[in-house]
Design a binder for these strands. Structure first.
Length: 288
DNA sequence: AATACCTGCAACCGCAACTGT
DNA sequence: GACAGTTGCGGTTGCAGGTAT
């Protein structure tokens, strides 16, 4: 039995939205709020697929959207986030208020890629184009040795940590492993963990004020956030670096990187170190 | 002026994840 | 646990407008 279609194709409009349709959608959401996208078109009197309504609202009609050109700072932030997260546009968009995943995706494909090429940087790997050309990529090995998917995101909201067990088959991901990196590690069962923590002063969601819809969203949405470091200490002062902690460990031990414990094991801002459990940690501070 | 080609972006599609029963 | 329904994500497409020939 195949999946049921998301809507009746025969009775739905497609293509560009008209002003009237936009107004109907805005009016409906103003009254009823977001959600129930499947039933929304019927209730709102729109001959559109629910998915189409959702997309239109999220990408173009939401009042909090920032229109206009991307700033240089936004460019750099996108590049940095992409080097971390790969093509996880929704995660990247979460760090750019007023920007949507679709907008960022398009901007990446049309502008930033070109910009990086002009800098001699491979937009997929974020390495120098020369290095990329001369380095043998062993993505197939990477695929085999790591069955985790990026969806195995282990939320630890209480600890303000987000662990991305990065093993997606997405060739666009920035997690390609080079032969050098494999040689660096004595075992092939390499796992690449990326831990990104909440800013320590990030206001936490109050469960008492979360309605069921938002609660559901909270559960679903990976809260991509950063733990701000200033030297060894967690610090939320204005002089901030992003501490990107990659735990290159074994798949079997499921070890995750903890920024909190890292502070005690390193004395420098950059570099690599090993820990008790054969876990390699690389610190890549950046400033924006 | 007409046509071809290029570019940017809005929208669509298929799939995976999530939720409720 | 199985299944069906819903939502969200990322890749891709198609079209409008701009530019080159």
């Amino acid at each position: 039995m195949g999946r049921s279609p998301c809507c009746e194709k025969e009775h739905t409009n497609k293509g560009a939205w008209t002003k009237e349709e936009d107004e109907r959608l805005i009016k409906h959401i103003k009254i009823h709020g977001e959600g129930c996208w499947r039933s929304l078109p019927k209730v709102a009197g729109l001959f559109r697929c629910g998915k189409s309504c959702r997309l239109r609202w999220i990408n173009y009609l939401r009042p909090d959207l920032k229109r206009g050109n991307f700033t240089e700072a936004e460019d750099e932030l996108i590049i940095n986030l992409h080097s971390l997260l790969g093509n996880k546009w929704s995660l990247i968009a979460a760090r750019l208020p007023g920007r949507t995943d679709n907008e960022i995706k398009n901007y990446w494909n049309t502008h930033i890629k070109r910009k990086l090429y002009s800098r001699g940087i491979d937009p997929q790997t974020h390495r120098s184009l020369n290095a990329t050309a001369t380095t043998t990529m062993v993505t197939t090995s990477n695929k085999k040795m790591n069955n985790h998917n990026i969806s195995n995101i282990n939320h630890d909201i209480n600890n303000n940590n987000l662990e991305l067990l990065n093993g997606t088959e997405d060739s666009n991901s920035s997690s390609d492993v080079t032969t050098e990196e494999l040689a660096f590690h004595p075992h092939n069962q390499l796992n690449l963990d990326l831990s990104i923590g909440l800013p320590s002063n990030q206001p936490k969601h109050s469960s008492s004020t979360v309605n069921p819809e938002n609660k559901r969203k909270l559960k679903q949405e990976p809260q991509v956030v950063y733990q701000w470091y200033n030297g060894n200490n967690i610090n939320t002062s204005q002089q901030q670096h992003v501490c990107l902690c990659y735990g290159l460990g074994f798949q079997s031990n499921n070890q995750t990187c903890s920024c909190k414990t890292m502070g005690t094991s390193t004395t420098t801002l950059t570099g690599t170190t090993t820990t008790n459990n054969n876990l390699y940690r690389i610190y890549q501070p950046m400033s924006f």
